[in-house]
Design a protein around this nucleic acid. Sequence first.
RNA 1: GGAAGGGUAGCGAAGUGGUCAAACGCGGCAGACUGUAAAUCUGUUCCUUCGGGUUCAAUGGUUCGACUCCAUUCCCUUCCA
Length: 408
Amino acid sequence: MTLFEDLQWRGLIKDISSPELEKKLNEEKLTFYIGTDPTADSMHIGHFSSFLIATRLAKYGHKPILLIGGATGLIGDPKPSKERQMITVEEVKKNVDKLTHQAEEIFGFEVVNNYDWTKDINVLNFLRDYGKYININYMLDKDIINRRLESGITFCEFAYTLLQGMDFVHLYESKGVTLQVAGSDQWGNITTGIELARKKNNVELFGMTMPLILDDNGVKFGKTEGNALWLDKNKTSSYELYQYLINSSDTCVIDYLKKLTFLTKKEIEEIELQHNNNPELRLAQKTLAKEVITFIHGKEEFDKALKMSEVLFSGNVNELTSKEIEICFKGVANFDISGDITLLDLLTTNNICSSRREAREFLNNGAISVNGNIVKDENMIINKECAIDEKIIVIRRGKKKYYLGFIK
RNA sequence: GGAAGGGUAGCGAAGUGGUCAAACGCGGCAGACUGUAAAUCUGUUCCUUCGGGUUCAAUGGUUCGACUCCAUUCCCUUCCA
């Protein structure tokens, strides 16, 4: 199977700028880039799913460059609905540093920052050297801009696409990059770069986009409860990541395996077969979790997440020693307990429940358990005596949310 | 700068003087069922010491009483310049 066929089979190709690209990908060694803007201090699983393409292409001998948008992040890619809130310069800088570090650590490829080549371009150069090549009508035709004309768009965001186009051209000129890969929402920006290069450098650059990964509710992969799943394990523990992946729906999980792992077609088809025979074993989900977490955090973290999940969902928490709990709950929300405190106060003061009212409701529903036992008494006194090894209290809210209290 | 429309809970959206802590939908959270699934069903969704307290962009005003009326301010959108 050629690279292109493999990508197609995995459903990773949405648009390509020219049919020629297939041949180029299969037969040549290209230098390509994929980028993201530093809108947060960590990448999330969504970035991961698209950045994986870098590793995939690299395996076939292409050279990846990862771009962190220190410049474009200051402007903001237009969202379909409304203007973005500007991020402060300091924050962007901070995010760039973190993302750069993270990208290097997880993917191990060269990382560049477009701020480096954009910061010294003055407004006149910008207009003459780049603005002159792009017609306004061309920009207005872009989906993302067109859609915003009704609700309004500032010049700042309107110009964003041009900045990204400049990146492509710059990377072509300085590093011989001829291909840009991105999520499908970036198509408009990729084509701006191609257009710019065609007019300015008289060269044909290539673009390829991947479809968004959606679950069966049409929700973007990796979005849960409005929180992203971060790749920084201090922001999202490997346990949480494991839980998200293991809960993938049957209808999506095979698709996820294709898109998020490096398992071969044969291996995935074998898993699919077994999975369909015994869906309740969730072999596909387990494999997915293993592959993804091992890639991001390494084997050790995966083992930890696995052990913790097994303990929490099959065994009983109070069979463990405090030491074991401490190890496998690392990363779970925790707090200190000093002296006696009623359960109700404990729940509210540590943000396990947002109000006393809510805490009572949970207690009444039997949603709260302490060290594995459901408790309904809001006045239960929590102290050293009821702690495991007199050290740790494990609070569970609902089925899956855990909190650790350390006796001080 | 001018004209018009608008700002209601996490979001969308009703309410246009009292029966409004505010319909309805989505989302969230919990419970049942289950495969830690999906679907479904049930409860709940400002705070509370359960007396009550604080909310409908902000500030003042009218009124016994304001989300509803008036004034000013701020913000958003559209059209015109």
